[in-house]
Design a protein around this nucleic acid. Structure first.
Length: 817
DNA sequence: GCGGACTGCTTACCT
DNA sequence: ACAGGTAAGCAGTCCGCG
């Protein structure tokens, strides 16, 4: 008997020639990916409500080359709340179901479940669990959790979601050490300021760096000779022939089950693939090109650019600490390491310098996945376990696809019919609230008008995940809001225009509820009190992974790209949210508490008594089963009349700055520095008297900055506005914003083409704007900068009753303040 | 022909 | 391809102005 144990399922694909699914399993022992062709009897299919006669009399269908047979199946339709009978049309291959103009789903007018990716379909139907362990016993795949599963000292929370136990069992499986390498390549630039085209791959590959987690790092450089050297950190391999270099690189890639890149789908791996075929490099190609990605034949490619571009990763997993999806920015923010700054063009570097430059990028890329004990890799594996998606799909798609897959698998498991988008919209598109922002679909949250001024002892209360709590407690789901039962129509909480089902538990509310319970009552406590440090930190990662799904639950309901998009469900969430928020504000006022400000799910109370705060917390807990927390205690807070703009100083002197210009990434650095100086003066203030001396030193400090500006003692970099180009320059057809003007100058004068996502640095000059690299300090428009300073400081000083004089023409110092 | 009032576009932020 | 709400600055347009 042959047995291979502890193989983690990472991915699956369809082999068109063999007409079967091939699973990718990672073996931690040999540190390889095993390709396992499935021998299971599973075929692609779709469902239809057309009768057997109608179908059999359709010559296009029965004569279709991929048509196999028809079976009768029962499915439970959640939208109709009843069982229905369908004909299941089974095909010989996935493309016969959908994907071409002549596929069966185009022939059969009424089709369900016909647009689900076949690999996913296979995973759900055969109960595969990506991220779980399997054994191969005598050629058969057997689900087999590893024995060393993490102990659980805590009881699972009760939940009406049946899969919870199974999910926990999967989540608690250990994550193995995965052999991997990062890779980065450099290509000889086709000319100054020109980027090589990866689709054409016309220019030579001049350097390739590998930074693996096993063995020595290597850099291959194209040079005038052949030879190896070791600089103590890495091997530098000089190769005199590009074709041979590529051949070596491809062999090296083959050694790793996981390759990590930054933008490898669109550049590094794509370039290697195209360049190797262009030069007819011999040997087996380890890369596989897809429509907009590049895969490994014997492994998995993780393109970190796609991962970090993902809004959920950016905001929930990393708390928004990086703003720009570039290797340099993310590296600096997350692992404290940026790209090597180049003084000259890449093409001008000597082979040794080039090797260093290339290696640094590979190092940053490696650190990003390996940092904090492989936090990111672990998160990806957990996303795979929760969503039931192959690793590649987790990497390439956003949270709406992850949640979609999770819900699809639950439908299949419970034999629920998967509704088409149009089925949901037919009943759930009714919207009643008008959005405040033009072009939006429905009304969102309430933002209170702040009371301008300075307030000591401010208490900030906020709801613990308000929207997910509403989804859970009010039974909100695509099928339960505006359900089909007459008897539910009276169930409209907070006078909502949409009624909610009383008879069935909603599928989305059940899942979100279960995930929330699991996070709050199981993983969060375990992440705090588990003795073993390694396990404790693992539980913390699980807790964070679950949070991503919970936090996105409301957003996807209102996203028209989401398969289960249900506008009236999303609208009900914000409706109830507004109701609960308003009730909280009214109650606080009725208790005689001064409400200074509030936004969506938070209220700022001026010096409330502890028992009053307790009363509010109790009210919300008893009436709505939602937790209200004391989020912050500010020694004092400063508010202008502007919403989403304030400054709060906590007891320990920490300063929270929200929305103020001085904090924005686009604001010139010297203004930010001056603003920061002001903040640090203000953070020391303990009472009203101390404000006077603070104001005096703020004025002194500002005058210093103004003087520097007037004497043009600032660098152009300090004066630059940094604004992101969100789309290609040519796509700005409505108007031409300043950063686009600067980008156009760069292209015209220097031949530098700015791309979407680039940050454009420009300064304001007498004639308009100029890119930093084209401007001189003499042409700076000083008045413009004075007014930027004024506007920035006003946001804080205005509500404090401190006046700044507008600068006059003469631009004397005394005119400013 | 010029400037103020206005709208719309764009970016960056908040929850 | 998760949501809506807000601030701010600029671009472009309309309209009045003997």
């Amino acid at each position: 008997m042959s047995v291979r144990r502890n193989l983690m399922l990472v991915s699956a694909s369809y082999d068109g020639e063999a007409r079967r699914i091939v699973l990718k399993l990672y073996d931690p022992e040999t540190q390889e990916i095993i390709l396992f062709p499935s021998s299971e009897n599973h075929q692609p299919y779709l469902l239809t409500d057309l009768s057997m006669e109608e179908l059999m009399n359709n010559p296009q269908l029965v004569g279709h080359h991929g048509f196999d047979r028809i079976e009768e199946v029962k499915k439970y339709d959640l939208l109709d709340d009843r069982e229905k009978v369908f004909r299941k049309i089974i095909a010989k291959d996935p493309l016969s179901i959908g994907g071409t103009a002549t596929s069966i789903r185009e022939i059969v007018s009424r089709a369900w479940e016909a647009d689900i990716h076949y690999v996913w379909c296979y995973i759900y139907d055969t109960g595969k669990k990506p991220g779980l362990y399997y054994s191969i016993v005598d050629g058969r795949l057997v689900e087999q959790p590893v024995e060393a599963a993490l102990e659980d000292t805590l009881k699972l929370p009760v939940s009406n979601y049946l899969e919870i136990k199974e999910l926990v069992d999967t989540l608690n499986q250990p994550i193995p050490f995965v052999k991997l390498s990062s890779i980065d390549i450099e290509v000889k630039p086709p000319g100054p300021n020109h980027v090589p085209d990866a689709n054409k791959a016309e220019d030579p590959v001049i350097a390739v760096a590998f930074k693996p987690n096993t063995g020595a790092p290597k850099v291959y450089v194209l040079d005038g000779f052949d030879g190896e050297e070791d600089d103590g950190v890495k091997k530098i391999i000089h190769v005199s022939d590009e074709k041979r270099l590529l051949s070596e690189v491809l062999k090296e890639i083959r050694k790793y089950p996981v390759i990590v890149t930054f933008n490898g789908d669109k550049f590094d791996l794509l370039y290697l693939y195209n360049r190797a075929s262009r030069l007819s490099v011999e040997g087996k190609m380890p890369l596989e090109k897809g429509r907009d990605y590049v895969d490994l034949v014997y492994g998995v490619h993780i393109d970190l650019y796609r991962v970090f571009f993902n809004k959920s990763i950016q905001n929930y997993a990393y708390g928004g600490v990086y703003k720009e999806a570039t290797l340099d920015a993310i590296g600096k923010a997350l692992v404290g390491k940026g790209k090597i700054a180049l003084e000259e063009d890449i093409g001008m570097l000597k082979p040794r310098e080039l090797a260093e430059y290339c290696f640094r990028d590979a190092e940053i890329t490696f650190d990003l996945i390996a940092n904090k004990n492989y936090l990111l890799l672990k998160l990806l594996v957990l996303f795979m376990r929760i969503s039931r998606l192959p690793l590649e799909d987790v990497v390439r798609h956003g949270v709406s696809t992850w949640i979609k897959s999770m819900l699809l698998s639950i439908h299949r498991r419970n034999n629920y019919l998967i509704p088409r988008q149009e089925d949901i919209l037919q009943f759930k598109s009714a919207k009643v609230s008008e959005a405040i922002i033009k072009g939006k679909k429905y009304r969102g949250a309430i933002v209170l008008e702040p009371k301008p001024g300075l307030y000591f002892n401010l208490i900030v209360l906020d709801f613990a995940s308000l929207y997910p709590s509403i989804i859970m407690n009010f039974n909100i789901s695509y099928e339960t809001v505006r359900c089909g039962h007459d008897e539910c129509r009276s169930n409209a909480p907070m006078n909502s225009p949409h009624w909610i089902c009383r008879k069935r538990k909603g599928i989305e509310s059940s899942v979100i509820g279960a995930l929330r319970e699991l996070r709050v009552k199981y993983y969060q406590p375990l992440a705090k009190k588990t003795r073993d440090e390694e396990k404790r930190s693992f539980y913390d990662v699980v807790q964070r992974a679950i949070k991503v799904f919970i936090n996105a639950s409301y957003g996807v309901m209102g996203a028209d790209s989401f398969h289960f998009y249900a506008p009236c469900a999303a609208e009900t969430v914000t409706w109830i949210g507004r109701g609960i928020f308003t009730e909280l504000v009214e109650t606080a006022k009725a208790l005689g508490i001064e409400v200074v400000y509030g936004d969506t799910d938070s209220i700022f109370l001026r010096n409330p008594k502890p028992e009053e705060v307790e009363k509010l917390i109790e009210l919300v807990r008893n009436k709505y089963s939602i937790e209200l927390n004391i989020d912050k205690v500010y020694r004092y807070g400063v508010f202008s009349q502007r919403k989403k703009n304030y400054l709060g100083v906590t007891e320990d002197g920490n300063v929270d700055i929200k929305g103020l210009v001085g904090k924005k990434s686009s604001t010139p650095k010297f203004v930010k520095q001056a603003f920061h100086d002001m903040i640090s003066i203000l953070s020391k203030v303990r009472n009203e008297e101390e404000f006077n001396s603070a104001v005096a030193s703020i004025k002194r400090m500002m005058n210093d900055y103004v003087e520097k500006l007037m004497n043009r003692q600032l660098s152009l970099e300090e004066l630059a506005f940094d604004v992101m180009l969100s789309k290609p320059v040519d796509n700005y057809d409505k108007n031409t914003p300043q950063h686009v003007k600067a980008a156009k100058q760069l292209e015209r004068e220097l031949g530098v083409k700015a791309r979407a996502g680039d940050i454009i640095s420009y300064v304001k000059v007498k004639t308009g704007v100029k890119p930093v690299r084209m401007a001189r300090i003499e042409e700076i428009d000083l008045e413009k900068y004075l007014s930027v300073m004024k506007a920035t400081f006003e946001q804080v000083l205005d509500p404090l009753g401190i006046e700044i004089e507008p600068p006059r023409r003469s631009l004397k110092l005394k005119d400013f303040m």
